[in-house]
Design a protein around this nucleic acid. Structure first.
Length: 573
RNA sequence: GGCACCGUAGCUCAGUGGUAGAGCAGGGGAAUCAUAAUCCCUUGGUCGGCGGUUCAAAUCCGUCCGGUGCUACCA
């Protein structure tokens, strides 16, 4: 049996994620996971909230609640929203879990023992008023180059020049505005990434053919520029504390850098899954040694995450000297833009997961987003495009097909699958076409080529409408009842076929569609992928079985509604 | 500043050396089972500009213009 391990980039815990976050990692990971389950593969889909780092700590400070409570609150929100979007994780964990604490320390100790960590002292901005070290970008001041007064310590947003906090005129804390910025010595652990350049390059070379160009291009860029050693500790409260046995006891009060512990949470979340379900060491068989040899590991992420998954995390694993699994297939995505500009969490620009569900059901978002996924380049969301896609593809092509077939069956064949007549040339031509298209669709999904896959899925629905036009049972019913029966029977079989093919993308709608024709028989929680020859798939309904025409499956979004949505969500500026 | 990616029909995008493609939108027709849905036909592009390599360039090279991202202490 093939085993498929799937992780999607961990959403940062602060706040509700926008649709750009969703389409770049969690949604494609889920569609791929559902597809794998439907085909009968043993599949494990893992995600979690990424909870550490300065932004969470500061956001909690801002709200005046303990950071642990803040994180717990948003973890719950994100998990709930994920469920509402039909994200079928086997486990949605937390990078602050005890399991991750334990594994992060395990890796850190292995790296320390193997001599790949070293202590270095760096100069860092410190604010006595805030009582904390400030990351470069949390120091703001006047840009020495252009005079912009709100330049950040890492870069001036106005003139785009790269800066150092010490370059700023009148530096102050972005947290409190305090001007007592000092430069203090800070001792941190550095991971000797530079020693892994050759191994990383060889490893990436070996995956070149399988990874999107976007991914290898980003990975090579980091290697070509000369990989620098990276600090993996921070002066923060919230995080995984560095123990005394690492760093000669010189790192008291420091925590591991969020990007050190976050990818390890992929493994830890798998352990959380095993612990919750009483599966003991089963988690290890997905990740470690010979037991995991038959596992194909897929990662899904936006392009901003690629360096950490092609360089940072692999170095951690290589440096551990232990046989942990490295990623096999890495699917990276570009950005989804909102009406020509960026989605922005801080700027509250765009559409967020909670608001999206007030506009349209999860399945319609899933379809639209993945059909227009930013695979080869950034892609652009507009309300017109969204409404057009929902109205045409889902309401007219798919939804209306289900309605026209089932209602005609009720009107003329008593709502039962008609058994008269035999398939002829039209039916055989359709069977041949769908055999080919289903194979294509399957191949695109196997390769995680989502835009192409969805184009094929749509073409399959269209083929159904084309067939109905040729079969025209509404004409034949007047003169040749058996001939009309053949058209209706094939139409009903088509509806039944559309259910499993649509299920990975639109799980709720697929169930409704399936139930219109027959009760759903789940296999491991999935609607099984078609496995028989198409001639059998399309002749599988028993004569006289009753059907249940559904109500309107997909509501249309009219022009007035589009105008209202544009007003409500802004954009187009 | 450096580097990377992108610029193809009104819109969203395929297409990486061999006579420009899809979906939507627009136009014409057919059908009337259905959420006025569907089906057929069709208009439309000097493939960002310029220069080069080649028998042949959207595709390779150079350069310029425009957009986006990264630039390692945001994640």
């Amino acid at each position: 049996m093939t085993r498929i391990l799937i992780t999607s980039a961990l959403p940062y815990v602060a706040g509700v994620k926008h649709l750009g976050n969703l389409v770049g990692s969690m949604l494609p990971a889920d569609i791929f996971a559902r597809f794998c389950r439907a085909r009968g593969h043993e599949t494990l889909a893992i995600c979690a909230t990424d909870e550490h780092g300065a932004p969470v700590e500061l956001a909690a400070l801002d709200e005046g609640i303990p950071v642990a409570d803040y994180s717990a609150k948003w973890f719950k929100v994100q998990k709930e929203l994920g469920n509402q979007f039909g994200l079928s994780w086997d486990n949605f964990g937390r990078s602050s879990s005890p399991q991750n604490q334990e594994l992060t320390l395990h890796f850190a100790r292995a790296l320390w023992k193997n001599g790949f960590l070293e202590l270095r002292t760096t100069k860092q901005a410190y604010s006595p008023t805030d009582g904390r070290f400030l990351p470069d970008r949390y120091v703001i001041g006047t840009c020495p180059h252009c005079g912009y007064e709100r330049a950040r310590g890492d870069q001036c947003e106005n003139c785009t020049r790269v800066l150092d906090p010490t370059d700023l005129i009148k530096p102050r804390s972005a947290v409190s505005g305090a001007q007592d910025i000092e430069i203090r010595d800070a001792t941190h652990l550095f991971l000797k990434q530079s020693q892994f350049v050759d191994r990383l390059r060889a490893w990436i070379d070996s995956h070149k053919a399988n990874w999107p160009q976007l991914v290898t291009s980003i990975a090579y860029k980091w290697l070509d520029e000369g990989l620098k050693d990276r600090g993996i500790t921070r002066d923060l409260e919230w995080g995984i504390p560095v123990p005394d046995d690492i760093g000669e006891g010189k790192l008291k009060g420091k925590v591991f850098y969020v990007w050190f512990d976050a990818p390890i949470e992929y493994i830890a979340s798998t352990k959380e899954w095993a612990d919750k379900n009483g599966k003991g060491d089963a988690w290890k068989s997905w990740w470690y040694g010979d037991a995991a040899k038959d596992v194909t590991y897929w990662e899904f992420m936006g392009k901003d995450n690629v360096p950490f998954h092609t360089v940072g995390f692999p170095v951690t694993i290589m440096a551990s000297g232990e046989p942990w699994k490295l990623v096999d297939r890495l699917k990276g995505f570009n950005w989804l833009n909102y009406d020509g500009g960026k989605f922005s969490t801080s700027g509250k620009r765009g559409i967020f997961m909670d608001k999206a569900l007030e506009v349209a059901p999860a399945d319609t978002w899933r379809y639209y987003l993945i059909a227009n996924a930013p695979e080869s380049a950034d892609s652009n969301f507009t309300w017109e495009q969204f409404a057009g896609t929902i109205n045409k593809d889902l309401a007219d092509v798919l939804g209306n097909f289900v309605n026209r077939v089932t209602k005609f069956c009720v009107a003329r064949f008593d709502g039962k699958v008609p058994g008269e007549g035999a398939y002829g040339d039209d039916e055989n031509a359709l069977i041949a076409e769908l055999e080919k298209r289903t194979q294509q669709y399957t191949a695109f999904l196997e390769a995680a080529e989502f835009r192409k896959a969805l184009g094929e899925l749509r073409a399959i629905w269209v083929a159904g409408n084309e067939y109905m036009t040729r079969a025209a049972p509404w004409t034949h019913i007047k003169t040749d009842r058996a001939k009309a029966a053949v058209g209706v029977r094939m139409g009903l079989n088509l509806v039944r076929l559309f259910a499993p093919l649509s299920w990975p993308v639109m799980p709720q709608m697929a169930v409704k569609i399936h139930q219109a024709i027959a009760p759903v028989a789940y296999e491991n929680g999935a609607i099984a992928w078609p496995r028989r020859p198409m001639a059998q798939e399309l002749d599988s309904l028993k004569a006289d079985a009753p059907i249940n025409p559904p109500d309107v499956l997909f509501a249309k979004i009219d022009e007035e509604r589009v105008a209202a949505l544009k007003l409500q969500f802004g954009g187009g500026d």
